[in-house]
Design a protein around this nucleic acid. Sequence first.
RNA 1: CGGGGCGUAGCGCAGCCUGGUAGCGCACCUGCCUUGGGCGCAGGGGGUCGGGCGUUCAAAUCGCCCCGCCCCGACCA
Length: 480
Amino acid sequence: MIGSPITPREKDFATWYQDVVIQGDMAEPAEIVKGCMVIKPNGWGVWERLQRELDDRFKATGHENLYLPLLIPESFLKKEAEHVEGFSPELAVVTVAGGKELEEPYVIRPTSETLVGHFFGKWIQSYRDLPLLINQWANVMRWELRTRMFLRTTEFLWQEGHTAHASHEEALEEVLRMLDVYADVAENVMAMPVIKGVKTSSEKFAGALRSYSIEAMMQNGLALQAGTSHDLGQNFGKAFDVQFQSKEGKLDYVWQTSWGVSTRLIGGLIMTHSDDKGLILPPKVAPRKAVIVPIYRKDEERAQVMETASKIARELGAHLDAREGQTPGAKFFHWERRGVPVVFELGPRDVAAGKIVIKRRDTGTKEPIAQSEAAVTLAETLDLMQRDLFAKAQQRLMSNTVLANSIQEVEEMLADATAEKGGGKFVMAHAKDAPEVDARMKEFKATVRNIPLTDGYDGPGKCIITGENVDRRVVIAKAY
RNA sequence: CGGGGCGUAGCGCAGCCUGGUAGCGCACCUGCCUUGGGCGCAGGGGGUCGGGCGUUCAAAUCGCCCCGCCCCGACCA
């Protein structure tokens, strides 16, 4: 329950994560619905902020929101061979409705490429209809065998962007543009450093030509795919007969893209910043940036403290914790585990001196400041905390990234890494995008996370499995 | 689907082996007292013991069946 101790990261990282989610009042398992969760107000508040940051950027890049049905005719999924093969194991299917067996079952959307294909076919006739840039905020369902709150649940929330273009070049630009948007939000809003890259063929989205991802490193060194952007080529255009007439009067299939991030981001956020005391939220995503805890003994002290506290709370837009019957100590713990970036303490001594104590969640540092400077100091502190959190995460990413020049080295470096015990690393090695390479990695439960878009190392080299030349090192890690 | 664990008050658990009609901590309610890092004291409310069947004078406890949840693995954003 809320108020219970939090398992230290050292002892068991996976349990720590669960504890932080629950103690931080972010979410709880929906015990009555297998694999699903209840996202509580503190967690939903973070999602709302992420949504806004993302949505603003989608609009700024010319996209419009719409909404498509939750149910998809089963036959739609089957139109793209690779797509149906990839998704069929995890589909939930509606076969009975209104008390009758349906003639054709509906699948609950696992993603909407097929519906989009159908409607794009209706909406697109000529090159004048292109590019078509849409996005949907929705829930999707994938029947996962193993779930973890935020990281993988049966039902989850996301946005899925879908676009159609007249040329492959233009589509590819879109794919990379949106990957940049994701990296921007991850790094500058969530303070979570990521590596942009291309997925290997065996890890790509079912039905795509190529998939791109941003990969983040959690505190246990495991990788988390935090966002994906797909170059769908003409695969869905052909499957759903989405043709347009070019300026020259020729018919051609459209070039499509799709891209998405989900509530999984919140899991990444938690595993990037939080500590053994609970949640730590970067100021830009925190539903409550600052809370004031009043301290008093007698009634006359209470009156004075509360008057000053509510005045400052109004000025700062901070939340005043005016709950009666709770000691200040209990309140400090309460806000600490919920990840509030800044907590102010205001007692009789401070009121008398015209001061207030400001405390930072991430560092735990506490200092008295003049009340008149509270607003400025708060703004500075939030700004500094945002940057410090990013710097700290980036430092961790760098110090846990290692180079390897043989498959044995890679295997050794990742041998002890698990979600519970930690010890994960990003191992940079030369490796080809080939099935035998992925298969070899799988033997020790690692994967090629992606092939970075920019080479931060020593350029070309020989693949550690096939010996063939490849032009850069790839990210190999164990992942969620 | 395989391996492990667990279902007893809102939450966390004890009781079960050795049957006798349910208890502890936290939370909650009332009063007093306290308040600069989880206050204290006193009193109080709250239970189909996951479900079904069976054994028995008697089942939380023994037996059989079922259901659910969590963790670990195989699949995956």
